[in-house]
């Protein structure tokens, strides 16, 4: 597959603090690639380097085939960015915001005007065209920012925590919107705190912590990598079931749970479950109910970073709100 972003051994320090500590990854053309990591992991720093907003200190980075150190202008022409912080001039109207953007990217007038119409429709802001940006709701402002990032038809769109501080409905709408944009051919590089977001949107995910990539893969691969598929099984004959289950090499352990048994697996539970059912029935163990619980991305995250996202919970939420500057 073609790599539209290639990063090799990237380092970045602020003074003597190392924020990015030797990361390498590739983003394939057409995919949605996510950086998932706690506060201060180095996500924004990486994005800033990839988008030429920070100088490349060490390593090799190519975006859309261009070297970010030597071909800055080409890189800039290839990308769209939605920053983590809100970047909007509240005193301009929605239309002026897009017009300004198109003009600084050198889009010819006719194309620009046409694109503005398209973008307004896509972002569902047609009725707000002449409204000053400061009078838009937070979700509308974010949609406007995403539309602006897309306006120049970038090969890659960078989204730094696009749904931070938004309500679930708005967040969901923005996800749909991102998917739509991606289907139309834009490669997306996303950073997020939200497991759910990374899980539902991404083709592939890198978990990043303390400036290092801990693991990269599809959400499935990440979950399977921790080998913790769980099977919940209800039966009257717990003893016998437990014995049979324990004899499989795929099984890591069997525990008594409230109503039945909880089986943790080393292997892919989806493949294992049918075999287990068959052999239990052959031995005459009657199963009342059975369910397979896939480990969530939360489990994966905990496994690899040894801690929960520091941004979750009521206190974390406050941090998030503060970072998105209200005006």
């Amino acid at each position: 597959m073609n790599a539209i972003i290639e990063v090799e051994d990237l380092h970045h320090s602020y003074g003597d603090f190392t924020a990015v500590n030797g990361i390498s990854f590739r983003v394939h053309t057409g995919e949605i690639f996510s950086f998932l990591g706690p506060n201060g992991a180095g996500k924004s720093t990486t994005i800033n380097i990839l988008t030429t907003l920070l100088p490349l200190q060490r390593g090799r980075v190519r975006v859309n085939g261009y070297d970010v150190r030597k071909e800055k202008k080409r890189v800039r022409e290839s990308i769209g960015i939605v920053f983590q912080d809100e970047v909007l001039d509240g005193d301009l109207t929605v239309w002026e915001t897009l017009e300004f953007h198109g003009r600084i990217y050198g889009m010819p007038r006719a194309e620009r005007r046409e694109r503005i119409e398209e973008m307004l429709k896509l972002a569902d802001l047609e009725e707000k065209t002449e409204e000053r940006v400061k009078y838009l709701s937070g979700g509308m402002r974010r949609r406007l920012e995403i539309a602006r990032g897309l306006m120049t038809r970038p090969a890659v769109l960078f989204l730094d925590e696009p749904t931070l501080g938004l309500d679930p409905q708005t967040r969901y709408r923005i996800w749909k919107y991102i998917e739509k944009v991606n289907r139309e051919g834009t490669t997306i590089f996303l950073t997020t705190h939200y497991m759910e977001e990374a899980d539902s949107l991404s083709s592939r995910i890198s978990i990043i912590d303390h400036g290092k990539i801990v693991i990269t893969g599809t959400s499935e691969e990440l979950k399977n990598s921790i080998g913790k598929d769980l099977i919940y099984l209800e039966t009257v004959n717990k003893e016998k079931a437990s014995q049979i289950i324990g004899s499989f090499s795929e099984v890591r352990g069997v525990r008594d749970s409230l109503r039945g048994l909880e089986v943790s697996l080393e292997a892919d539970g989806q493949r294992f479950l049918p075999r287990l059912i068959v052999s239990l029935e052959k031995e005459g163990v009657e199963i009342t109910s059975i369910s397979l619980k896939k480990p969530t991305l939360d489990d994966v995250f905990l496994h690899y970073t040894g801690r929960e996202l520091r941004d979750e919970g009521p206190q974390g939420k406050k941090v998030a709100m503060r970072r998105r500057r209200g005006r």
Binding site: T52, L53, K73, D89, G90, H101, I104
Partner: peptide, 11 residues
Amino acid sequence: WGIMKEMLASP
């Protein structure tokens, strides 16, 4: 307001 970032990130 960050508009400087928008401008500096543009070509």
